[in-house]
Design a protein around this nucleic acid. Structure first.
Lengths: 123, 123
DNA sequence: ACTCTATTTGGCTAATTTGCCAAATTACCA
DNA sequence: TGGTAATTTGGCAAATTAGCCAAATAGAGT
């Protein structure tokens, strides 16, 4: 593994991931995975100021996650890369596995691999 | 689609994604996808203060992305969910598609779907 | 108990990110 | 040309995050 190259890659990757790492933004990505929507629709569903939504959309677009097209008055946004949903499922998997570990504290019989409970190495 | 439920999900998802959305953190995840490593090793490769690395690792662990085990003096970190690499490939796909669009400005003949060039709806 | 190495924690400042308001822009229509 | 709806931009205050130093903690060996 070429550390230097991997480090550079990490810079680019982090930018894209960071764009997705906001509740409202990942929510809108999920909404757009269903179908194209206008800023207005997204604003109403997400429930925030239009200007805020617009800025979120611009961040996602800058990172190559969304596209838009104009139709009359309105701007319609679209998901570019369908693999994003696969991405989301991977995240859900992490959340699910984490919940399992959480549960196992209450129901220890489920038996989970050791040292996977918490985050504090001291103890 | 149940917006309310999806909105709640978005909260959880964003936490995990945010944890991954930092150059050093996603770099370490890539490193750990190869093999288990100690804080010291990661610190040397990543090139930052140990305390900084330790905090990054704790963030990733809190979000259920990493585990650790202790061996003597050292703490060895591990990737929990192998699907994270799949996740990274998805991001790389976004980056790749974006680069293609960038190129196409220079080499317009490549022919790309319309309205996918930039991020500024005005114009 | 003392020392050495590895790692985590506290604390503090600097940098970045959010979200809202007000103002500007764009497209359409009368 | 004026008006209206949709969207973006500027700008600012509040909140969050990052990264470094110093100090604390943990494990092994002497």
């Amino acid at each position: 593994m070429n550390y230097q190259k991997e480090k550079t890659l990490a810079q680019s990757r982090a930018k894209v991931i960071k764009a997705l790492g906001h509740p409202t933004r990942i929510f809108m990505v999920a909404l757009l995975s269903e179908k194209e929507r206008s800023v207005g629709e997204l604003t109403e569903i997400a429930g925030a100021d239009v200007s805020t939504i617009s800025k979120h959309l611009s961040i996602l677009t800058q990172q190559g996650i969304l596209t838009f097209r104009k139709e009359g008055n309105r701007v319609l946004y679209n998901l570019i890369c369908p693999c994003i949903m696969q991405f989301i499922h991977c995240i859900d998997d992490v959340i699910y596995k984490d919940a399992q570990r959480g549960l196992s504290c209450i129901l220890p019989d489920l038996k989970i691999p050791e040292n996977t409970q918490a985050n504090n190495p001291s103890e």
